[in-house]
Design a protein around this nucleic acid. Structure first.
Lengths: 339, 339
DNA sequence: CGGGCTTGCTCAATCGATGAAGCAACAATT
DNA sequence: AATTGTTGCTTCATCGATTGAGCAAGCCCG
């Protein structure tokens, strides 16, 4: 394979020579702090013109190496396979760029080792901040980063060693469960406990949502059935298998269910279709997370949408103000009414 | 806000001092090329132990500054709001990491200016390669990068100044249209032309898909109706509006349609629900792109899934082998049968 | 006309990692 | 004993941008 000889990149020294001036003048001008350095506006204009003509792009490695701060900000994210994380990443990027920060994002597929490796890589690239989103062990990440002098914030799943921004899982689940219970009662003309499907029983979000799920039952005077709580993981297959096993075990399933994520919902809907357990009379569903296609799936599905804009406002509030108290900010999710 | 005094990061000089050796020995050992540099394995072990104890993380900015290659690879992507781009990004990251490359991803929201700005930023970070995915103007990106000695490959949408990997849009659309035509014929007991909804008439993919759409009509001896081809952009709202306008214009719409992306499909389904144009008898739909929830939406929807694994294999084949001929690789998408 | 101030620059050290060149110590060979 | 070779390091220049220190020229003031 022939390697095309590629253009040598221009440096401030090249520009300095072309402008008949010094590299430090060029640097000062292109940084925008030439007023402080008392460079004449004539020289400044000339340098800017030449830089433009030459298509100059600064070498950020050199710049970052020399500076105190890198202005690089890292985000760790579990998956790109749903709208929730997709919108988090998209908005994060935009907000970082607005602030003159360069975002670096890494997808760790809920793998604790990959999370640590990603954090280490980010440290090596001198990030100023790491946002750990939905991390399996946020505190390990925080500790690793802290040792390198890198601040962290947790998003979606909370940690105890750095500030965290999460959804108000209890209130959100309470409200969502209320709606599903209500829909069921209207349809069946009696009160009955629901199922809970998906998520990891060990993670904060799932346990808070289960707490809200229980509370909504108690509110209307019924006792949730512990056997109907299936925190079987997030994967669609897991949800499908758990429902299958439960149906085989107890015969008829409840007419309503709380599903812990769109990803789990995928498995739930598939099982409903395949097994035809419910026949014509579709169960009432509440999904903790929003997807536009789910909204189109039928009128029997309620959703809450986690408030990504507010969550990221809170994240950048923490970052912009250099807050490091280890507190928890909970953002109320939004109930989505069917179109 | 009190600023916690943060740990000073360890450098190879710190490690050298601790090990009673020189920085270059430390560098050689931690790079793994200490055999070439004839460092004794005793010293190597000692240095590795100390680096471990100290939680040393190399400064990649310094490293990249010094090296010839950065081993950073950039990807530009339009959106994170669908499974197609989500899986592209997720797989790209994994494959880059497998090769010891550090991936940097930027979402440009189909904004040509943002695309250029993102490319410039990547050049500043000394990326070795840029993958321009679904770029509105891939050739401008290629030219900008080429001027800085950065190679590019196009993904999803082709360019003419660098190699491109895209779906076989013609064949994919041909096959998808065949299926929908066939489904329609079975239902109506007669042949009739379909609608085409979504995409930009100016982009290569859309025009190729329209060509396939037309070819499938001709194959069964009917003429596609040019008035039924609505390349109205990708946004759901656009699709919804176009359908509304068309329905008002011509009265009854065809019983089948080709939808150019899941994002457009969102608007299509919403319009079908809201307008109740089709009543009980749902239209036959073919969607160029896959989404698991769409698969659950009903039996009247056919989809083709673009073959992301094969596309990325082709991309990395080009990268690994340093190919720069400006050729076009077309990957056949996969027909998804309903569950 | 000399001292002090301002303006408008340049010089040179620095950030941390890398690797070519060099050097000391010892072994092997003639 | 002198030469050559090998082993196992160290030294130092370098990558490109940044920035404190410094310096020359011009101006003002008493």
């Amino acid at each position: 394979m022939k390697r095309v000889s590629l253009a040598k990149r221009k440096t401030i020294y090249d520009l300095a020579e072309l402008a008949g001036t010094s590299a430090s003048a060029v640097s000062a001008v292109l940084n925008g702090n030439w007023k402080k350095r008392r460079i004449s506006s004539q020289l400044a204009e000339k340098i800017i013109r030449i830089a433009d003509e030459q298509g100059y792009a600064p070498n950020m490695q050199a710049s970052v190496l020399r500076r105190e701060r890198s202005s690089i900000i890292g985000m760790i994210v579990p998956k790109y396979d749903n709208r929730y994380f997709g919108s988090i990443v998209e908005r994060f990027e935009a907000m970082a760029r607005e602030r003159g920060l360069f975002p670096i994002i890494t997808c760790t597929r809920r793998d604790p080792d990959l999370e640590m490796e990603a954090a280490r890589a980010m440290i090596s690239y001198q990030v100023d901040y790491v946002i750990a989103t939905g991390a399996t062990d946020p505190d390990r990440i925080t500790d690793l980063c802290a040792a390198a002098g890198v601040r962290t914030v947790n998003l979606d799943l909370p940690g105890t060693h750095s500030p965290s921004v999460i959804s108000d899982n209890f209130q959100g689940a309470l409200e969502l469960t209320r709606r599903v219970l209500d829909n069921c009662e209207k349809e069946l003309a009696r009160k009955a406990p629901l199922m809970f499907v998906g998520g990891r029983g060990t993670d904060h979000n799932t346990s808070e949502r289960i707490r809200g799920f229980r509370a909504a039952h108690h509110e209307i005077g019924i006792t949730p059935d512990e056997n109907l709580i299936l925190a079987c993981g997030y994967a669609p297959e897991k949800a499908e298998q758990s429902l299958k096993a439960l149906a085989e075990g107890i015969g008829e399933l409840p007419h309503g269910m709380f599903v812990n994520s769109t990803i789990s919902l995928e498995g739930v809907i598939r099982w409903i279709r395949r097994s035809d357990h419910y026949g014509e009379r579709k169960p009432q569903i509440g999904c903790f997370d929003f997807d536009p296609f789910v909204a189109l799936l039928g009128e029997n599905i309620e959703m809450v949408r986690q408030d990504v804009p507010k969550m990221l406002d809170a994240i950048f509030d923490i970052i912009d103000n250099g807050i490091s108290d280890r507190h928890l900010i909970e953002i109320m999710p939004i109930a989505e009414s069917m179109a």
